[in-house]
Computed example of a mutant assay.
Amino acid sequence: MKIINNFFELFYPKLCANCDAQLIENEPILCTFCRHDLPLTNFEDYRDNKISKIFYGRISIEKAFSLMFYRKEGISRKLIHELKYKGNEDVGVFFGNWLGEMLKENKKFNDIDCIIPVPLHPKKLRQRGYNQVSKFAKTVSIHLKKPFIENLLTRTSSTKTQTLQSRFERFTNNDTKFLLTNYNTFKNKHVLLVDDVITTGATLEACSKELQKTENIKISFLTIAYTEQNL
């Protein structure tokens, strides 16, 4: 099998998603040079950081963490667009493995009970063919050995993608709505809500307000990227 794979890669080499350099063994998605160029947040405090402060006075959360900063130009934008618009779900798996291993080692989310991906509206899911967050969230759940629960939280309104909106539109967009189909499932549970990018936090806030109709629920956030200029 390895010989067949090597023969295939000779004619169809795997390329870095950022610079198109040929990847070598043990280099998934990114070459080593581009991986080192990622704008990592390096937040050590998961309870009190720039991300958690977005939600002060809006909703109550336990912890929040994003792996890297989302910039208008550069590698982080290219990777998110590969994941979100070009069907490259391997990007989500790549970051899921990275964050899953990191969180397993630092034990920051050891107290969570389950992991939920932010859902897409059914119409957008049909158009795109996949939820870009699902494989990312599921991969994290495998590392943390926590249940991955999809489809109980649904999106009931369809809005324009936030990464394509102006900053004013993002701040004034309060129309995103979600529905939890069973308010007993997460009773007395600590839920890790997972998304790809935090912009203003409006989507995660809307999800949380619906989830908080559950008795004694705790909520934390995890995303691949965070748009720093929102603060």
Rank of each mutant, 00 (worst) to 15 (best):
N97A: 06
I116G: 07
S76W: 01
I115H: 13
I115R: 11
G92T: 03
G100Q: 08
G96Y: 10
V91K: 02
F136M: 07
F94K: 10
N97S: 14
Y85A: 00
V91S: 02
N110V: 03
W98P: 06
N88A: 05
N106R: 00
L120A: 07
G87C: 04
G100E: 09
G92H: 03
K138A: 14
S141F: 04
V140F: 03
D90L: 10
G100P: 10
I80W: 01
L99D: 01
Y130N: 08
I75K: 06
G74W: 07
I115G: 12
E105D: 12
K123E: 15
C114G: 13
H121P: 11
P122K: 10
K78G: 05
P117W: 07
Q127D: 14
K107Y: 04
A137H: 03
W98R: 10
G92V: 07
A137E: 08
L79Y: 04
L125Y: 13
L120G: 05
D111H: 14
R126M: 12
P122G: 02
S141P: 03
N131A: 05
K108N: 11
K104A: 09
C114W: 06
Y130S: 08
R77K: 15
F136K: 02
H121L: 10
S134Y: 15
L83H: 01
V133H: 01
F136W: 04
I112Q: 05
F109C: 02
P119G: 05
H81D: 09
P117V: 06
P117H: 06
P117C: 12
G87W: 02
I116W: 04
H81Q: 15
L99I: 15
L103Y: 13
F94Y: 15
S141M: 04
E101M: 13
K135A: 10
G96E: 12
T139M: 11
E105H: 08
I142H: 13
N88V: 02
Q132N: 09
Y130R: 08
I75H: 04
F136I: 03
G96V: 11
L83W: 00
V133G: 01
G74R: 06
K108W: 01
E101D: 14
W98E: 14
L103H: 11
N131Y: 02
V91D: 03
S134M: 12
G129K: 07
K108M: 03
F136G: 02
M102Q: 13
F95Y: 13
L125V: 04
K123I: 15
V118Y: 11
M102I: 08
K108I: 00
V93H: 06
S76F: 03
P119I: 09
Q132S: 07
G92M: 05
E82D: 12
V140C: 10
K135N: 14
E105Y: 08
V93G: 02
M102R: 14
P122E: 06
K84E: 01
L120Q: 09
N106D: 11
I142W: 05
R128E: 08
G96T: 09
G87R: 04
V133Y: 02
E101F: 12
G100T: 12
I80C: 00
Q132W: 08
V140L: 15
F95H: 09
Q127M: 15
N110A: 13
K86R: 12
